[in-house]
Nucleic acid binder design. Sequence first.
RNA 1: GACCCCAUCGUCUAGAGGCCUAGGACUCCACCCUUUCAAGGUGGCAACACGGGUUCGAUUCCCGUUGGGGUCGCCA
Length: 473
Amino acid sequence: MAVVTRFAPSPTGILHIGGARTALFNWLFARHHAGGRFVLRIEDTDRARSSRDAVDAIVDGLRWLGLDWDGEPVSQFARAGRHAEVARTLLAEGRAYHCYATPEELTEMRETARRDGRSVRYDGRWRDRDPAEAPPGIDPVIRLKMPHEGQTVVADHVQGEVKVANRELDDMVLLRADGTPTYMLAVVVDDHDSGVSHVIRGDDHLTNTFRQFQLYGALDWIPPEFAHIPLIHGPDGAKMSKRHGAVGLAAYRESGFLPQAMRNYLLRLGWSHGDDEIIDTDQAIAWFGFGGIGRSPARFDMARLISINAHHLRVCDDQELMGLVIPRLGALLDGNLADDAVLRVLKGMPALKARAKTVAELADNAVFLTRIRPVPLDDDAARLLDGEARGRLGRLARLLDEIPDWSPQRLEELTRRIADEEGVKLGLIAQPLRAALTGAKASPPIFEVMDMLGRDESLGRLADALATDHRNS
RNA sequence: GACCCCAUCGUCUAGAGGCCUAGGACUCCACCCUUUCAAGGUGGCAACACGGGUUCGAUUCCCGUUGGGGUCGCCA
């Protein structure tokens, strides 16, 4: 049987971490199987809460994460007619019935049940009543007749065999009074109609599964297989909130996280393959399966995400990073990003990417290469350029001016020789030099920096620093 | 409250009865390397929630307790 998975978010908010991981698992499972399909369905039956912006956010988020779906996204709302038809069939077959209880009546019923310490369920008051007793002027809902005896057992690929006594299941609403389908009806019909073979979703749907299972039975349909993955909690173990990582995926992109890092992190949150931590996407597709999914909830850990991101940044292709960094540099420089500056950043990328944890940090660290002379010095840099340092730098500048080969090796040789002659440690020259060339006290290795900057720019920046007196500042 | 699920270092996890003196990764600390910052290397701190069983032997199996989470809508 062909494997078909789906991601079925409701467009009522942002695409958060939990949703992204659910999508990732579904995608990986489909791609793991030859011929597998991954479909996207927008559960927009709640018209009041659904929005176009939310749909866009979901689509953008999935694209950014690199999770491609097969075929066009399905709008659940557009299938409302089909859902209603199924409900009416069930009604005609006597497997469902009209219920005329008003919302007020149901609220009262629940409050009473809760007060008496009983479980809060619909009591089936219209289940066996003669439709002739229907009160006038009330549009009924259609409810499914759940069995009262026996138990419902779901063989979940993650949670194992999960069972519940059928008496715990109440007669759920299939079709609302206005003729629109409820979620319970819509998912079952849509999953069935689109041939979904495996439903991989959050643990919060586990208890819903019992009821959906009954609906499949009433329809004489074979239910798909289920895998309920544990939820992702906030760092404090409580449900994700805005304080935590419950911001949209877009926020992570803006913060400078790489999609490949995000996939890696999300994959390892709730799934494992021995001691493997860094897993690229091809490897993930090859390895992914239900066996590696854990049963307990995981907490979101920003430090770990950052660490994984730093790794992917280090191994990322330079050109790919340039594409991400250039817009950020442009913004940092108010659009004054010169072509030769871009070339310097490209040349410096191998050294730069090893020192950053996010793309945002990478851009910050690269900005010194793009500054237009004279480059501003920060306080630490200014402090390094004291009288003695300037004296040594002056001498170095004169020798540098005559050096035939502007290579990191020759530059280092020369500088070390001067340090020797002056009887000082290399750092006493290298640090002021760094301050003069980068305007900061930390940077990639200074001789590499000189190479990135090139002879003219390096000498120019050095001259600028020597010409300005920072001792009184 | 009822029902369902879960339980190994602070966090993510390995572990499928003896391989466990419980392993890896992140974080943190120390040292090494070193022109700074990183990276890297070495070492360290740190866990089987508790109580009963089953067994020659339990982190691993069963039961209970405690703790955490989820679901109980004409929301999805």
